[in-house]
Design a protein around this nucleic acid. Sequence first.
DNA 1: CGAAAAAAATTGACACTGTCAAGATATCGC
DNA 2: GCGATATCTTGACAGTGTCAATTTTTTTCG
Lengths: 187, 187
Amino acid sequence: MNDSYHHGDLRRALIEAAVEAIAEGGPGSLSLRAVAKRAGVSHAAPAHHFGDKAGLLTAVAAEGHERFADALERVWESTGDFAEVGVAYMRFAVDNRAYFATMFRPELLHEDDPELVRAAARSRATLYRGTGERDADGTERTYNPAALAAWSLVHGFTELLMGGNLAPEVGDDPEAALRDIGSWLRV
Amino acid sequence: MNDSYHHGDLRRALIEAAVEAIAEGGPGSLSLRAVAKRAGVSHAAPAHHFGDKAGLLTAVAAEGHERFADALERVWESTGDFAEVGVAYMRFAVDNRAYFATMFRPELLHEDDPELVRAAARSRATLYRGTGERDADGTERTYNPAALAAWSLVHGFTELLMGGNLAPEVGDDPEAALRDIGSWLRV
DNA sequence: CGAAAAAAATTGACACTGTCAAGATATCGC
DNA sequence: GCGATATCTTGACAGTGTCAATTTTTTTCG
């Protein structure tokens, strides 16, 4: 509990330091040693909690999926509008650059980490929720063309936006632009 | 021309070696020294042609945009069908993983490199071609909601596909799936 | 309470990386 | 042939991830 040798909750502190570092330079430029320094511990401390660099990024991605699912769920429950969920999708990416950028970079992660798999499945399920179609047993379908179209559109717009590939007039008010192009989708 | 000291066309050889390496491990894991070894030259040779690592990746991205624009143009001119251009978009990504993955990773590139800017503008112009809308002076519009919706949808689908985020039934025949979800777009 | 066991964090080393400066070698202009 | 220049190599440097060994703390339990 004291702050001499044992940190108390170093795992938490390392994740937070990692998120800060990712926000500054992207997940690809993350340095374990820099994260350790930021958290005030020795250079090899992170490895003890996460195994390796991919392990730390995996923890960040998993936490990102949880927060993502929370945000989407909140919007869906308060509005019941699928289009609003799409807008929340984009807004999460803008407001949580570090998490979002890490979540969709599989080559940096331990893809089969159970915690990550579970969190990713939850955020995916949230996305498909409310798109109507269900299988015979009542569970929501995982492949649903209309939902996949909407997901693709929102994800693509978001990726292009974050990569700076959109015209300035779009980037200045992305929310309006997204609602605009969303109306081109047949409901 | 001989192969002793001067290589002949080392720049070309390095780009090709880089593309091979990227195909294996993604643009983020590219090592200049490994590329140099692959091309059979010393570890510092690449820096002389490309300045730094980002310079080499920028050259790859620029060449990717050129090839991309070529592919899209070919399809547009032979079919005149915008939906076919979308399919070609995805197919290019699948068939040219290394180029595609590099093109849309701005944090690894010299974004204002003239060659890259020019090539990226060309591939973007090709995308917007044939979507109808024009400005008063006759040039195609850069912001066109319908075209942006289509671009977002195709790009998003492609990104999700390449990231392994789609259900197996989609990944097994992505072309059919893309045509399927494309029909959810109001023309 | 106190010793044994486990957990947490440190230290030091290793091979690898990008980048820079200095030197060596080839080609080109004249 | 000869100076200028482009091309490539060599050697060095700090920074990186990862591993093994060690030190320090906490927990377990008789």
